[in-house]
Every structure is written in structure tokens, then in C-alpha cells.
């Protein structure tokens, strides 16, 4: 174990990877497939293992991998911090929105059968899983932004604010 930490522990661990050409090429190739796999897991949750939660994590993992290799900035060009935050809320609201919709349709909260007599369960599950996926992916990405973009010299500011 002690040997393995060598290249990583050096200063600025994540940054160092930018110079590893093999990793970069491999990562560039892998990322789209991971994203695709995430989508598969998302929508195949009805039939096989998986669902929104796992898909969201996978999706974020792809972004994280990309970020580790090419820098957080590059990821943030695609998904800015503000977008990631918005998507967290959107995911949760999508889920809760399904519930509110069924409730407004006169059935119980989250009673998918209110959506459609025949396919209500399918639609409902699809929608809420999408909500979970969006929320989880966005949250994980946001967490990564929070931790991955910090540097040892950016100590928390001491400033305090009144309102």
C-alpha cells in the first residue's frame, strides 16, 4: 500500500493527473461510455438492477473522472455550478411534483394510478426515477465541485456577515 501512494500524495494530487497522457486518452474514451451506461441503468431499472440512484451516481462519476483528468474548469464549462444546483432542486421537484399531481388528480400522494389507469405505474416509476437520477447526479457533481475545487491555501474566510 505504501508504494502506491507515491505518485498521488505529491502536492496537488488531482492536478498531477493532467499530465498523464495514457490516463487522459483512456478517460476521454471511457467517459461517453460511462454516461451511456448511466442512461441505460436509469431507463433499464424496471428490468434489471439499477434505477435512478445508481444511474445518477454513475453519471456523476463520469463527470468526476473527466474532471480529475482535465480539470474541474472543463467540467464546469459544460455544467456550471449554478446549473448543478438548479438540477438538484429540479430533480426533487420532479419527484415531489408527481406526488402533487396525483394528489391534485384526487388520488393519494404518489398514487401513480391516477396518472393513467393502465400505465400509471410505469409512467410514475419512470418519472420519479428520472427525478432521483437528476437529483443524485446533480448533487454528486455539486459535491465534487465543492471538494474537488478546493486548495490548501484557500482557507475559510473569517468574515462574518450580518444580514
Amino acid at each position: 500500500m505504501a508504494d502506491e501512494r507515491g505518485p498521488v500524495v505529491d502536492d496537488e494530487p488531482p492536478m498531477r493527473m493532467r499530465e498523464q497522457i495514457v490516463l487522459q486518452v483512456g478517460g476521454r474514451l471511457l467517459t461517453p461510455f460511462i454516461l451511456l451506461f448511466a442512461l441505460y441503468v436509469q431507463f433499464h431499472g424496471d428490468f434489471g438492477p439499477g434505477g435512478g440512484f445508481q444511474a445518477g451516481v454513475l453519471f456523476a462519476a463520469a463527470l468526476v473522472l473527466f474532471g480529475l483528468l482535465f480539470g474541474v474548469d472543463r467540467v464546469q464549462q459544460v455544467i456550471p455550478v449554478s446549473v448543478s444546483e438548479v438540477m438538484i432542486a429540479v430533480g426533487v421537484l420532479l419527484y415531489a411534483g408527481v406526488g402533487v399531481t396525483t394528489l391534485l388528480l384526487g388520488s393519494a400522494f404518489l398514487d401513480y394510478d391516477a396518472l393513467s389507469a393502465e400505465h400509471g405505474q410505469h409512467w410514475g416509476i419512470l418519472l420519479v426515477e428520472a427525478g432521483v437520477g437528476i437529483a443524485v447526479a446533480a448533487t454528486m457533481t455539486r459535491l465534487y465541485y465543492a471538494f474537488g475545487s478546493l486548495h490548501p491555501d484557500s482557507e475559510p474566510a473569517a468574515g462574518e456577515h450580518g444580514e
Binding site: G51, G99, L110, Q121, G124, I125, A135
Partner: peptide, 16 residues
């Protein structure tokens, strides 16, 4: 997602 969908909503809110 369905029987215990409310729990999952809760879990999603935990993530939030």
C-alpha cells in the same frame, strides 16, 4: 419507487 415510493422521495430529499 411505488410501494415505498414515499421513502424514496425522502431519500432523494436526504440527498438534497
Amino acid at each position: 419507487a411505488s410501494y415505498r415510493g414515499y421513502d424514496t422521495l425522502g431519500e432523494t430529499v436526504v440527498v438534497l
